[in-house]
């Protein structure tokens, strides 16, 4: 699945008006949904798409550190200006969908996008 397919499925719009050739053909390997930064950071797998309702600059940091392919903000949320600025600097595509988190996940899962891999939670020795 490519980013342009994700946009279609989620009825999402790019947040920044950059020329679409910059992102539309990028391959989305998997997806993860989270509103908590540390949870995002517990996932592995570059090329993952992040779905989140969190809009502050730290979401972009997480995407940068983990090499996410893009971020889609759910339920009509728009990222804060500093977040957009950092995304621009780091070349991370941002999208916004009016859909809720639950519906967004459901649609992408139904379209066969796999969940991002995650270390199995195991008790601390």
């Amino acid at each position: 699945m490519k980013l342009k397919d994700v946009c279609k499925i989620l009825e999402a719009e790019p947040v920044r008006k950059v020329d679409s050739s910059r992102w539309r053909s990028r391959e989305v390997a998997s997806c993860q949904a989270s509103d908590l930064i540390s949870d995002m950071l517990s996932f592995r797998g570059p090329g993952s798409l992040l779905l989140t309702g969190l809009t502050n600059i730290q979401v972009i940091r997480a995407a940068e550190l983990l090499d996410f392919v893009g971020i889609c903000f759910v339920r009509g949320k728009r990222p804060e200006p500093e977040a957009v600025k950092l995304a621009e600097e780091k070349d991370i595509p941002l999208f916004a969908t009016p859909l809720l988190m639950y519906e967004s996940c459901g649609r992408l899962y139904a379209a066969k996008l796999p969940a991002g891999t995650r270390k199995e939670a195991s008790p601390i020795a």
Partner: peptide, 27 residues
Amino acid sequence: RPGFSTAPDWVRELGFGAGMGLYNIKT
């Protein structure tokens, strides 16, 4: 311990305080 956090609500609303920080470092 994963999930343990002393973070106040305002920190949680920023997306932090999931109690995964030190655990993530460990992994």
